[in-house]
Computed example of a mutant assay.
Amino acid sequence: MIAGIGTDILKIDRLKASYARTNGRLAERILGVDEMKVFQARLARNESRGMAYLATRFAAKEAFSKAIGLGMRMPMSWRAMQTLNDPSGKPVVKCSGKLQTFMEEKKFFAQVSISDEVDMAIAFVVVTYGTPVVSGVLDIKDMGN
């Protein structure tokens, strides 16, 4: 069952301006440890791709906070929710700390989709509760629950 949905879209130039104004501290405030490693590597290779990565992660956190119904208040925090990629490249949600506990207690599972173009980034999150959907298919034994 769907517990919530959230979406966020932003102009990458606005994020770049904030990043520059804070001398890069914006990324440290927003990104979790694993996201930061990817961001730094991408930024070192290509500045625009690094900024697009930061923008999609920002949008994902905003969309996720809307989908779980908390906004940016505890246990939701910028760094407690990360959007990482599984080996196939699919973006996946990874929660930690009190946010992970919140998700487990609520039996919430999140799916995230992110995309970017030259000047825009967007994220869409669907949060379900109960039985997690794996690869878009429920196990047949779970269909009556």
Rank of each mutant, 00 (worst) to 15 (best):
T22M: 13
T22P: 09
T22F: 14
L26S: 05
L26F: 15
L26Y: 03
A27N: 09
E28C: 13
E28K: 09
E28P: 06
R29M: 10
R29G: 06
I30F: 12
L31K: 02
V33E: 15
V33H: 12
D34W: 01
E35H: 03
E35L: 08
M36I: 06
K37Q: 11
V38G: 07
F39P: 04
Q40H: 02
L43S: 06
L43P: 05
A44D: 13
R45E: 14
N46R: 06
N46H: 12
E47P: 07
S48K: 07
R49W: 08
R49K: 11
G50R: 06
M51V: 03
A52D: 09
Y53V: 05
Y53G: 09
A55W: 02
T56G: 09
R57S: 07
A60G: 13
E62I: 10
E62G: 08
A63F: 08
F64T: 00
F64E: 01
F64V: 01
F64M: 05
S65R: 00
K66Y: 03
A67H: 00
I68V: 15
G69R: 00
G69N: 06
L70F: 14
L70I: 09
L70A: 11
M72G: 11
M74N: 02
P75N: 05
P75T: 01
M76R: 02
S77Y: 05
W78S: 12
R79K: 13
R79D: 09
A80I: 02
M81T: 06
M81Q: 02
M81F: 05
Q82G: 08
Q82W: 05
T83E: 08
L84V: 09
N85V: 08
N85S: 15
P87G: 03
S88F: 08
G89L: 13
G89H: 09
K90Q: 10
V92K: 06
V93Y: 00
V93H: 03
K94L: 13
K94S: 12
C95S: 08
S96D: 13
K98V: 04
K98A: 15
T101R: 05
T101V: 15
F102E: 07
M103W: 01
M103K: 02
E104G: 01
E104K: 00
E105T: 10
K106Y: 03
K106A: 14
K106C: 14
K107G: 02
A110K: 01
V112K: 01
S115M: 11
S115I: 10
D116H: 15
D119R: 04
M120E: 09
M120P: 03
A121N: 01
I122F: 14
I122Y: 07
V125A: 07
V126L: 09
V127K: 02
T128Y: 03
T128S: 14
G130N: 06
G130T: 07
P132H: 04
V133F: 07
V134N: 07
S135I: 04
V137F: 12
